[in-house]
């Protein structure tokens, strides 16, 4: 009997913290999403599912769904490919590789707000370095942050850049965990470097890759609003407003907490589905050693 109780007892501190900081706010959010609330909370009206109805019927929310999908899919796919390429290079035993690794990792240490500011200055239509380079190289006067679809592209680039270091660290540790003997055996069997990459490196990196994919989804879905807020504020014309940025605006700029809570519930639902898929299917496909 006591054997059965001990594990639960040991779980109490964790459950307490999770309950207090995650489940309790989540339940409150669910409750809030069913009300219309004045900014200071002194007027509260129960509206049932009307907040959700309004959201699902709103053309701008539908547009934001597409923006979110494109933003998340492109920045994760491209981000993973680019960071894998970087990791392969940084995994080579060349002199000074430590310095290169530090340089590549450093963007991750920069806060999203600062990253946004940095890119915003680089992409300034007249005095930005990137715009200047484009003018010199291609003779194009680029207006990165004020035209479509370049604003979304700029946001994606900044997000990938910011997240690069995190991905690379994990890929590097994954690469270093692959024993050299596998490669040697493959070489003896006559496999070329491309074949070795696709038959050994990639499959053995799959657990890391899927872990990173999930982490990147969380990152791009939930913490990307800093970059967006500073670079484009969701514009031009709503074209860079993602779900999380809309939530931030409705909650903390427009003080419409009922609507923001409903959006939050939708995000929780999406994350639930992603996590479910991850545990249900992805784990089966991944090669664990």
């Amino acid at each position: 009997m006591s054997r059965k109780l001990v594990p639960y007892f040991l779980l109490i501190p964790t459950l307490l913290i999770i309950g207090l900081f995650i489940y309790y706010p989540a339940v409150l959010t669910l409750k809030n999403s069913l009300y219309r609330v004045s900014p200071f909370g002194n007027r509260v009206f129960f509206v049932g599912a009307k907040n959700f109805e309004a959201l699902l019927h709103s053309p701008s929310y539908q547009q934001e769904a597409w923006t979110t999908l494109i933003f998340v899919a492109v920045s994760i796919t491209l981000g993973l490919i680019i960071s894998l390429l970087f990791s392969l290079v940084l995994n080579e035993k060349v002199p000074g590789v430590g310095i290169f690794r530090t340089i590549v990792f450093s963007p991750y240490a920069v806060s999203p707000a600062i990253a946004g500011m940095l890119w915003s200055f680089l992409l300034n239509p007249v005095v930005g370095y990137v715009s200047y380079a484009f003018l010199k190289m291609f003779g194009v006067q680029s207006h990165w942050l004020t035209t479509y679809p370049s604003a979304l592209i700029a946001i994606i680039i900044a997000t990938i850049w910011q997240n690069l270091g995190f991905n690379i660290i994990f890929f590097l540790s994954g690469l270093q965990g692959i024993p050299d003997s596998y490669y040697e055996a493959a070489k003896i069997d006559g496999a070329g470097s491309v074949r070795r990459f696709f038959s050994i490196t990639l499959p053995l990196l799959s657990p890391i890759t899927f872990y990173l994919a999930i982490m990147d989804i969380i990152f791009t879905m939930f913490s990307s609003f800093g970059i967006i807020d500073i670079m484009t504020q969701g514009g031009p014309g709503n074209s860079t407003t993602t779900f999380i940025y809309r939530l931030y605006r409705d909650g903390f700029i427009y003080f419409n907490s009922g609507m923001a809570s409903a959006e939050s519930m939708i995000l929780i639902l999406i994350m639930g589905v992603v996590t479910f898929i991850y545990f249900k299917f992805v784990q089966r496909v991944v090669h664990y050693r």
């Binding site: 915003s120 200055f121 239509p125 007249v126 942050l145 004020t146 504020q233």
Partner: peptide
């Protein structure tokens, strides 16, 4: 006229560098 985009900083930088 050049649109400085959202916020004050970009337009300000353009003016300060005498490009506007």
């Amino acid at each position: 006229m050049i649109n400085g985009g959202p916020g004050w900083d970009n337009a300000n930088a353009i003016f300060a560098s005498q490009k506007a």
